[in-house]
Structure formats: structure tokens, C-alpha cells
């Protein structure tokens, strides 16, 4: 039965020729390969904590430990103002999207080089690799989110009505991480310097994002410059939606969104235009 269907089906015709000019994004191809995206995410999750003693608990331990360190140094020693919110929950709320961002950025930037033999031996839209890496980070995020709920119960914090906006901030995080990772992963194919740039980049980015401190410390006249960093908008949004701080999205948010989209779109085009050389230069 299946055989006869196959015979009737008109095979598609593919033209292979040198590409010229700006490559089309060809997102339809990506859709055809959606199952591969799923399998790559699934593989990364399966493998991530294999042969570790604590397993998936690491998804919780990492942000919790960072929170404890931050609480001690910035909360107790430096006594940074937190708009009246207990420091642990103040920082943990920010560490959640921040952790997602750095994990996504790190794994996605290395996704092409760490799957080298797939790139040199099989055809598939190369976008699958960074995309799957970024989306895979969401699983850790969900696990770590459970601790936030515990913290909120403990500190008797009720989320605001704006909690429905969380997915939007999450989306902004994913877009920013993917956009930057598209650039870095494509550059990494030829210049492995990216591996050395990444730790500095994430560290620097942490300083310009109000994770450990409150965005209110940044003076008013710099706020528009500050909001060029989409992650600042994300962190402020998380605190606003969950803890009720008055750092909700304002007009500066538009700047954040535009910057994130700029990263994503330019990243997509750069990635696509470099894609054809990946198998030869990797």
C-alpha cells in the first residue's frame, strides 16, 4: 500500500547551483526539518546531565548558589538597595532569565563546531543547530522556576496581574540570545576566537544588566542608553511582573525590542550567507 503511494507521488525537483547575492532565508526548509529540531533538543537534554551524580538538580543548584553568593556580597556586605524586596528573591527573579540567556548564548555559539561531523556529512538547514540549543535552555529555566515559586511562598510575595507578560519577556530573551548566537556561531566556524570571547562577553553583559543591583541605580539621563541592552528590559520586566516593582516596560522598551530584533534579523542573514561555506571551513 505504502509502496504504491510512493510510486504515484511526484518526486520534488531540487536545483543545486552556486548561490549569489544575499541568501534567501528559506524558513520553509526549517519547517520541513522541525522534527530534527525536536530531536536535537531532546538529545541535548538527555545528554546534558548524563554521568553526573546530581543530574538535573544542577539546573537548580547553579542559580541557587549564585543567588546565595550575590545575597552575601551584594545584599549583606554591599547592602545594595532592592526597592524593599528581600535580596534573595530580588536576585533570583533576575537570575532566571539571565541564566537562560547565558546558557543559550554559550551552547548556541558553539553548536556548529560541536556538531562538526553533522555539518560536514549531512544536509539540513544549519539554523537547526543554534535554534535547538537556544530552545533547549528553556527546560532548565522551567526547572529553576520551581525554586522561585518556593521562594515566593516563603517570602509571601504574590505575583502581580501582569504575570501574563512573562512569556513575552521570555520571548525577548530567546530572540536576543538567538540573534547574538547566530553571529557568534557563524564566526566561530572560521575563527575559534569566539570561544575565548564568550566568557568576557557574558561577564561584561552581566555588569550592564541589573541582575545583582536595581535598575534604579542607573541615573535617569542614561536610561535610554541603558535600555539598548534588551536583557535589562527583560530583568526589569520579570521583577515588575513577579514582584511588583515599578520597573515595568515604558517607552525605552521599544528600544530594547528593536535592538533584539536587529540582532535576530541581521544574525539570520549573516548566518544564511555564511552557511554555504560552513562545510568547507569548519
Amino acid at each position: 500500500m505504502a509502496k504504491s503511494i510512493e510510486l504515484v507521488r511526484q518526486p520534488e525537483t531540487i536545483f543545486i547551483k552556486p548561490s549569489t547575492g544575499l541568501a534567501a532565508l528559506n524558513l520553509r526548509d526549517l519547517w520541513t526539518y522541525r522534527e530534527l529540531i525536536y530531536f536535537m533538543i531532546w538529545r541535548d537534554i538527555k545528554v546534558r546531565y548524563k554521568q553526573t551524580m546530581l543530574g538535573a538538580a544542577w539546573a537548580i543548584i547553579q542559580p541557587v548558589l549564585t543567588m546565595l553568593v550575590f545575597t552575601f556580597i551584594f545584599g549583606k556586605v554591599a547592602k545594595l538597595p532592592t526597592d524593599g524586596i528581600p535580596y534573595p528573591i530580588f536576585s533570583y527573579t533576575a537570575l532566571l532569565p539571565w541564566g537562560l540567556f547565558t546558557t543559550a548564548l554559550n551552547t548556541a555559539s558553539r553548536s556548529l563546531t560541536s556538531n562538526q561531523n553533522m555539518v560536514t556529512k549531512t544536509y539540513f538547514p544549519r539554523l537547526v543547530l543554534p535554534l535547538a540549543s537556544v530552545l533547549g535552555g528553556l527546560v532548565d529555566f522551567v526547572i529553576a522556576f520551581a525554586i522561585l515559586i518556593v521562594l515566593m511562598i516563603y517570602y509571601k510575595v504574590t505575583p502581580t496581574a501582569a504575570i501574563w507578560t512573562l512569556p513575552l519577556f521570555l520571548l525577548l530573551t530567546v530572540i536576543t540570545a538567538l540573534g547574538v548566537a547566530l553571529w557568534l556561531s557563524a564566526i566561530n566556524v572560521q575563527y575559534r576566537d569566539v570561544n575565548y570571547v564568550l566568557p568576557f562577553l557574558t561577564q561584561f553583559w552581566l555588569f550592564i544588566t541589573p541582575v545583582a543591583y536595581s535598575a534604579k541605580l542607573v541615573s535617569e539621563k542614561w536610561s535610554i542608553v541603558y535600555s539598548i541592552n534588551p536583557m535589562a528590559g527583560v530583568v526589569n520586566g520579570f521583577r515588575w511582573a513577579l514582584l511588583g516593582t515599578d520597573t515595568g516596560p515604558n517607552l525605552n522598551m521599544i528600544v530594547s525590542i528593536c535592538v533584539a530584533l536587529l540582532f535576530l534579523i541581521s544574525g539570520l542573514f549573516y548566518f544564511r550567507s555564511m552557511e554555504k561555506t560552513f562545510a568547507d571551513t569548519i
Binding site: I14, I16, K17, V119
Partner: peptide
């Protein structure tokens, strides 16, 4: 997997390639 520098190929049908076994 890689692009030609010049010339064209027309392929009718799905191509399965086995340049290596056990990729991935």
C-alpha cells in the same frame, strides 16, 4: 553539504546521502 563554485545539478527526488555511517 557544500555548494558548487560553478555549474548546476538538477536532482529529481529526495536524496539520501551516506557519506558516513552513524553521523550524529
Amino acid at each position: 553539504v557544500t555548494e558548487p563554485t560553478e555549474g548546476t545539478v538538477t536532482v529529481r527526488g529526495r536524496v539520501g546521502s551516506l557519506l558516513e555511517v552513524g553521523t550524529g
